[in-house]
Design a binder for these strands. Structure first.
Lengths: 116, 116
DNA sequence: ATAAATCGTTTCGGAGCCGTATCATTTCAG
DNA sequence: CTGAAATGATACGGCTCCGAAACGATTTAT
């Protein structure tokens, strides 16, 4: 129970954050893509297509396509599981780590600026 | 300088929030749509297409189309400006207010659950 | 009264993402 | 060794969104 925030502050934080994301990136990630990205960066590996699909309650092609996009952006990468070559392991990248870190810092900064 | 939050907490909060939005709504709003919605609900009126486009640094058709979508969802509504009938005034709706309120409450709850 | 300017919408071609169904590859069971 | 099961990728038709350009309606300037 660490972070106390009031509803009006939450909305302003959400607004400011989305505002920055819209302005900075010409190509903004969807809610699904952000969720996939953060899941990989926050939860312990391994991450498979099937596992991510189940966790987000979406179909497998959704994950495959999101990985195509996030892979093209170099924010995540695929790797075949050597022990079971049917599996694809989703892994972090340097660029992805920087992106996530920047997102976190932005949010911390915006939270600090909140009025009242 | 009200809300203190650490980077790892910010990421988890962001993840949890996007996760809920992906799971709850079958049709999730884009970052642009959320920004438009929150701008109208947080900043003082009047809100015009041109004003919103300038504020978000996007073209006017982007706003028009977002209003089409958000209007269809009944989260925002258009109204002609009686004093200058070229303008369109973007206004809140009951359903939109409830949606925004729910979003704020969700974020407050998720923040309260954050570890450490 | 006519021309210019302003505002929001529509059109156009192009691109991304959706879910369903199907496919190729790999593993496992009999 | 052969057939079933599991996994991720692909094909398909449909929908939404994008930016640029053109458009109709309205207001303002000359």
């Amino acid at each position: 129970m660490a972070v106390e925030i009031r509803p009006s502050q939450a909305l302003k934080l959400l607004h400011d954050l989305n505002y920055e994301m819209v302005r900075d990136d010409d190509r903004d990630l969807s809610a699904r893509q952000i969720t996939i990205l953060l899941t990989v960066y926050l939860e312990p590996p391994p991450h498979t297509v099937r596992g991510l699909a189940a966790k987000l309650s979406v179909t497998k092609p959704v994950i495959t396509r999101a990985l195509d996009t996030l892979g093209r952006m170099e924010l995540l990468q695929r790797r075949r599981d050597p022990s079971d070559r049917r599996n694809v392991l989703v892994q972090r990248t340097v660029k992805g780590a920087l992106y996530v870190e920047r997102l976190a810092d932005l949010m911390v900064a915006k939270a600090k600026e909140l009025p009242l």
